[in-house]
Structure formats: C-alpha cells, structure tokens
Design a protein around this nucleic acid. Structure first.
Lengths: 385, 385
DNA sequence: CTGTTAGCGCATTCAT
DNA sequence: ATGAATGCGCTAACAG
C-alpha cells in the first residue's frame, strides 16, 4: 500500500504538505451520507436528536469509509484526552512489569490508554517526561518511581494534572500506611533471622536502582529498620552496594567477594527483587548451599522466587494490585471524586520459605589464626515459644 | 492545589464547562509578551524571523507562565503525533518487559512517546486497540503479539499507519529469517538432547499464551521442528498443555502429574519463558533432581534462568534488541525511509547450561510388572561423529 | 429533527 | 520583522 494512495481530500484538493493525510474526516462522512457534520457528530455520539434513517445512512457511510473520529481533535474541545501517563525509572524488573500491568488493567477498563515513559533514574529526564505529559495533556499520571522529588511532581501539579500517589497530606497518609506495613513485615523478617541464630547479615542493594518508590522510602522502611533491629540484637549488619546498571555477573562477583571475608554473612537480604538474581548467582558461584550455608530473603515476590531451589523467602508486595488501586483512585479523581487514602490497601507481608534456616556458623575458611570466631552455640530455638 | 484555581481565561471569561482548563495557551503568552501568537509560534519553533528582544520577551513569558505547547493541537496541523503504539498480549512475562524496553529505548531516543496496550489474547480486544491507535493517530505501531491475524493489521494499514513487523513480502522475509534462526537453534538443542541419550521429551506449553510472535510461528519454528527431529531419532515426544491463565501452582500440578507416568519424560522443554517457573516448580514438587533425574531447556533467556540452581539451558533471543531494531525501522519508515529487512538481525541461539545432562533411565517407579522399560543402554555418544 | 457557526490551540500563509 | 487570518477535525450552541 505505502503512502502513495489517497493523497487527495474529498474535494480533490491536495492535502497538507507534510504527509498525505489519509484519514477520513467527519466531513467526508457527512458528504457521503448527504447530511451535515453536526448530524454525523450527533449520530456517532448518540447525542441530541437524529432521524433513524439519517443515522442509518451515517453509520453506513462510517463503515464504508472506515471513519475513526480523531481522539486528538475531540480532546481539543472536551479537554479530556482519555490518556494517562505511567512513569517508572526503567523497564528491567518484574516489579516494573507488575506495576504497568496494574495500571493497564485499571486504565483500559475505563477506556483510558496508557502512555509509558522511563526516566532512567535521571531527574532531568523525569522532568522532561512530566513536561511531555503536560504537552500531551494526559488526564492524569501514575508515578511508579520518582527520582526527581516533589519539584518534578510540581510540574504536573502546576497544570492541575492529577497525580498518584498524590502529594500533600494524603501522600503522607498513604506513605505512612505503606511504611507501617513495610516496617512490620521487615521487623518480622529480621526477628526471624535473629531467632534462627544469624549473627551476621548482609543487605544487597543496587545503588540508584530501586523499585517503585523513592529511595528515601526504602531507606526508611527497610534499611533503617534492619539497622535498628539487628543492632538491638547484637547482629553484625553489612551493606553490599552494587553499582547501578552493573551486569548480573558483575554483581555476582561482588557477592562472591563478600562471601570470602574472614567472617562472612550467614544471611543475605536482597533490598529489591531486581538484585535477587545477582545475589543468587553470586551465592551459587561461591558454592554456598541454601539454606544450609546461608539463608536468603528478598523484597518482592515473583513466580521465580517460588520456583527457585529452594523457594526464596520474601517480604512480598502485591505491586500489581497496589498499582491498580492507585490508578483507580486517579481515574476517580479525574472524574471529580476526591482521592481517598482508604482506597489503596497495602498488603506487604513476610512470607517464609525454605531459603531460610538455622545457621551453622561455618568456621572461617581463611586464617584460623585470626581471631577465632566466637563459636557461639546456635540454639535451634532460643528465645522462642 | 486541586481544581479550584485558575478557572478563568486571559480575558476573564469562564472557560469550557467540562473541566476548568488550567492550561496556558499560546494566546496567554502572546498577550504577556506583548506580541502576536504568530510571533510566539515562530519564537518557540525557531522558525522564520523574530527580533532578538521579542524572542527574549516571549521566552521570559513562557517560563513565567509555565507554557507547554499542546502536542495535541500541534499534531492537528502537522499530522504527526510523535506517538507510537506498542501492542502485546499481556504484561506478565519478562519477555513482554524486554519487548517494551526495546521499544521505549528506540522511541524516546527520537522524541517519540509510547502508547502501550494489551489485547489479553482476545482478537476483538486487539481490534479495539488498533482502532484506538487509529483514533489517537499514532504515527506507527509496533506489534509484539498478534492474536487477530492479518485482518486486524489491516485496520492500521487501511489508514496508512506503518506497522512493524511489516505485512507483505518484507514480513515474509523477516519471518523467514527469524524462523530459520529459530529452527537452527531448535535443531541444535534437540540433537543435543538426543546425543545425551534422552528418549522421551516433554514440551510444556500454555495454551493461547505465547511470547512476542503469533502462535503459528512458534508452532512452525519450534513444535514442528521438534516433532521432526525427535521422530527421526526415535524419541518419544509429549506435549503438556496447560490452560491459559492458570496459576503457577496449577501448572506445576500438571507437570507433577506427567512425571508420574509409567515412563516419564527425562527431558523437559518449556515452549516459552512464561511457563518455565511453572515447569521448574512442578519438577521440584516431584522431587526430581536437575539434571540427574531430568534435563530442562527453555525458550527465552533471563537473569533468572542464569541464576537458577542449576542454570537453565535456553534457546535465547535478544528480544530487547530485536524490538529496538524493529522500532527503529518503524521510525525510519515514518520519516520516509522504506523498511529494510536487513535492519533487524535475529540472534537466536542455543545456550547450553548445567540444566541438561545425560539421562539415567530411571526404572518406572510404579508397576515393575508393566512392560519392563526397554533398558536400552545409553551410549554417551551414539549416532554422532 | 437538522444545518450553520464558532471556537479548542497551534502553525502557517499572506499581507504589511 | 510582525500581525491578521485561515484551517486542522471535532463538538456544542444556536437558529432554523
């Protein structure tokens, strides 16, 4: 077919210079049906009065000509684009996919279409994205990952474009709920590790890469909680920070290095689901058995975590459901219903699986002369009922 | 902020009824800068002559007012929306994510924005999506999964909207290339299994769910090749078909069932990456060791396949790169460069990992009285050079 | 019931 | 170098 066909409009004049506009317009339909454009508009929108036969002729002409009303022209008048934006830092992680799925489900249900954009972890790119969303006149935006802070959100707010999670007091309320759940689950997980006798835990993060929330939230809800919880119990707590965008193999090497330390961690926590494959690869390369040699926990659940040998314990979120609820809230907001924090329910919880078990404090492999490890006897069930 | 502010236009009149249109228009900027709209337009587009001081005033006004030219109004004139569509069947699989990543990379590089939509495996929904893409006047569409066949593609073609993979002879050429690669890799994989002594292979599929191509392609490039290859070598070949949208646990149960058969398969092939977690979960539940008891191969690679214990052998695609190339081709096409099949390079290949190894023909566990399994001695390298 | 008209926000002639 | 006028495709108000 190519662009050769249909370069002329109804009246035979050559159309706009850029590209031949092959699209059938309401005018063409009107001419074909022998009515005015207003009648066509009324017919296709079931709006106002229109004679049965006229309507029939219009519908026939529409079908014959393959007429698709331009949503863009429509939104010029209605100031509703039926488009929402979804912004995430990148598209590499099952977490991002689940997020998009939730957004897509809620959006397509209501006839909205989703504009997806990635900030690549760059605040400037995020700015540009938000500006583009404004230019596109999206009816609302769902922010999965925010890297640029409130300043960037303001770009949307300044144009009265609804955003979720919403800024302001509601945000605090939502975030408070989320953090509370997160903290509770994290505490549960940490205490379980302590109970199982672990005295050295490593936290594996990928700098700059997080999931669906801002890094500061993760820090507050995960890292700081773990620091507190472990220091209370006299547990050594390391951070293995891997540079952003490192290949899995590179990350794995970092992990292997950490396992070589004189007194290596006996439990490993993946700060986000993204780093879990790297962590697992590293532990495999270090020839460590799970959970006999080391225990493993991850944030974020997936079929893969469940399929692993052994299945990986997680602090699981139902990201998809959360995103869905958040998006529904957004669409309601667009329709005039004020956003309400109770609409989103977070169900973070610790799910224990076979990847964690009691420590057997392995004797440090390297130099036995070095400060003999404390050989603290590991009670199978110490301070537990 | 809410919608309370800015309900009035420049001249104080109340704006359109629907929603208060808070957007600053070119008119506002013009008034503020004391010039005409034409001058503003010229200034922001670096088009035509405009005095330096006038330009400065315009730019200042723009910044002050936070003016974002409406991309929608722009595209009314230019008939270019700088928007492309990306269509997949669903968002559940790393394959879909990789596809979207490729599209997003290529698109955002050129200033395009991506409209994502899922057909949920329904040809009618796919129709609606394509119609919506037409209504949105997307400059082009990248089809990840096509469930409705050429008929649906025609919706776009009828409106002269470029689509990739492109229909027509070029499509055949592209598909031929893809299929050839796929067949070669599949053959290599199958022959490897034969060489390792496997005489009973199972092919695990999820009905209706595939990856990024049409089911018929997969059938041709994977299933039929395997059928041929195995029948040539006297290998029994089963299909374990799992119903679409089944939970992982359900799928796993199906797998477990299959392992219970009197003469169970010794090698398992996941038809798409989607079913691999289910397959692995099933094999774990059946308490089968990999690769001692059974070998496993999957189509599609991922960090998880590499992180598994043991790492899973795959017929790997670089989906992301393919999607990227395909999208670049699309954007070039939009710009007038005819699509060229050589722009897309497929690099499917068989990657052997520790998940496959020689069979040890396990004696059927159930009834030894039943036709004693052929106890054929397994030559480590039988009909091979 | 139907047609005419006036914009929505912007880019582009065509005058000046 | 600039402004007035036109039209992109569509809907809504108004007048038949």
């Amino acid at each position: 077919m190519g662009f050769a066909g249909a370069e002329r409009g109804t009246d035979g004049r050559v159309l706009s210079p850029k590209r031949p506009n092959a699209f059938v317009t309401i005018k063409d339909v009107a001419a074909h049906a022998g009515v005015s454009v207003a009648t066509v508009s009324r017919a296709i929108n079931n709006n106002g009065y229109v004679a049965a036969d006229a309507k029939a002729r219009v519908l026939a002409a529409m079908k014959k000509l393959g007429f698709r009303p331009s949503q863009r022209a429509r939104s010029m008048r209605s100031s509703r684009t039926m488009t929402i934006g979804a912004v995430v830092s990148e598209l590499v992680n099952l977490v991002h996919l689940e997020f998009l799925r939730g957004v897509d489900e809620a959006a397509s249900e209501k006839g909205y279409v989703v504009l997806v954009a990635t900030s690549q972890g760059s605040p400037e790119k995020e700015r540009e994205i938000f500006q583009r969303m404004v230019a596109e006149r999206t009816d609302g935006v769902v922010v999965g990952t925010l890297v640029g802070g409130q300043r960037n959100i303001d770009i949307l707010a300044d144009h009265n474009i609804p955003v979720v999670p919403p800024p302001g007091p509601l945000a605090r309320q939502l975030n408070a709920t989320w953090i509370a759940k997160e903290i509770a689950a994290t505490r549960e997980m940490a205490e379980r590790l302590v109970t199982l006798g672990h005295r050295h835990v490593a936290f594996v993060t990928a700098r700059g890469v997080s999931g669906i929330r801002t890094p500061s939230f993760y820090r507050k809800a995960r890292f700081e909680v773990l620091v507190d919880c472990f220091s209370e119990n006299g547990v050594e707590f390391d951070v293995v920070d891997i540079r952003r965008n490192a290949a899995v193999s590179e990350m794995a090497v970092e992990v292997v290095k950490a396992t070589r330390a004189p007194s290596a961690p006996t439990a490993w926590v993946a700060a986000t689901h993204l780093v879990l494959p790297s962590l697992l690869t590293g532990l495999r390369m270090a020839d460590l058995d799970i959970p006999k040699d080391v225990s493993v926990v991850s944030y974020g659940d997936s079929p893969w975590a469940r399929a692993y040998r052994p299945p990986i314990a997680v602090v699981g979120h139902d990201i998809s459901t959360e995103a869905r609820a958040l998006t529904s809230m957004l669409l309601g907001w667009i329709d005039g219903q004020p956003p309400d924090a109770t609409q989103v329910e977070y169900r973070t919880r610790f799910i224990e699986r076979q990847s964690i078990g009691p420590t057997r404090l392995r004797p440090p492999k390297l130099s036995r002369s070095l400060e003999p490890s404390r050989t603290r006897p590991v009670p199978a069930s110490s301070s537990r009922s």
